[in-house]
Simulated assay, not measured.
Amino acid sequence: MTRALAVILALVLALMGWQSWRLNNAGHTIAKQAEALKNNKQELAKKNSQLISLSILTETNSRAQTQLYAAAEETSALLRSRQRRIEELKRENEDLRRWADTPLPADIIRLRDRPAIAGGAAYREWLSKSDAVPPGQVSAAQ
């Protein structure tokens, strides 16, 4: 009987040890999952703030784009009005019609044909490539 009791006691101790080991492993798993959950929450908060920033930026860009389209429409309307006024004036005044029909001077045409310049370096490069002014004649001092 003592032998059976000793075997049962050994089995109970083995089961308790095995259960304790499982409980310890479960505790470690829970701790790892809690840490992962904490990291995921931090990442989610970071991504959420980025999305909010992008949303604000998109809204701002949309408003600015709408304003630009409105300004472009207004400019286009003013240009059309100006063109109509010029045509009306040309029909009314013979001198103005002759003046409007004369071609622009060559220097003005050349100025209008220059490329788009972005920055000082591009301007200096364009100047160095364009028609240079010939140096003036220096007369010897008498």
Rank of each mutant, 00 (worst) to 15 (best):
R97Q: 12
L68H: 08
D131E: 14
L104M: 03
I117P: 00
E125H: 11
K90F: 04
E125C: 01
D107V: 10
S76I: 10
A122R: 04
A121C: 08
A121S: 06
L68S: 09
R112L: 14
A106K: 05
E125A: 08
R84I: 10
K90H: 01
D113T: 12
R114G: 08
A77E: 13
R124I: 11
A132R: 08
P105V: 01
R110E: 14
S76M: 05
L96C: 02
S76T: 12
A70M: 08
R85M: 04
G120E: 12
Q83F: 10
R84D: 14
A70S: 10
D131M: 09
A132Q: 05
K90L: 08
S81A: 15
R112W: 10
T75Q: 10
K90W: 02
A118D: 15
E73L: 03
E92M: 02
A118I: 13
L89Y: 04
D107E: 12
S128P: 00
R98W: 07
T102N: 08
D113M: 12
E92W: 01
A118Q: 15
S76E: 09
A122H: 06
I109R: 08
I108C: 04
P115C: 01
E74D: 12
A71E: 14
P105N: 02
R112V: 05
Y123L: 14
Q65W: 13
T75E: 07
R85T: 04
S130K: 06
S76P: 00
I108Q: 06
R80Q: 15
A77G: 06
R84S: 13
I86A: 06
L78F: 07
D107I: 11
S128A: 12
E88Q: 13
A132Y: 02
A121Y: 11
K129F: 04
D101F: 00
A132E: 02
G119R: 00
R82Q: 06
R82A: 15
A72P: 00
S130M: 04
Q65P: 02
D131W: 10
R114A: 08
P115G: 00
W99E: 12
A72D: 09
R84P: 00
R110P: 00
W126Q: 04
E74M: 07
L89V: 07
R80M: 15
P105M: 01
W126I: 00
A122E: 09
Y69D: 15
R91V: 12
T102H: 09
P103G: 00
A70Q: 11
S130I: 07
R80T: 14
A71N: 03
W126T: 03
L96F: 12
A71V: 07
R97I: 02
P115L: 01
D131F: 07
L96V: 09
L68T: 07
G119A: 01
E94W: 05
L78C: 03
Y123A: 13
L127F: 03
A70Y: 05
R112T: 05
Q65I: 15
D101S: 05
I108P: 01
R84E: 14
R80D: 15
E94S: 12
Q65D: 15
A122Q: 09
R114P: 02
D131N: 09
W126R: 02
N93L: 03
R112E: 04
S76F: 08
Y123W: 13
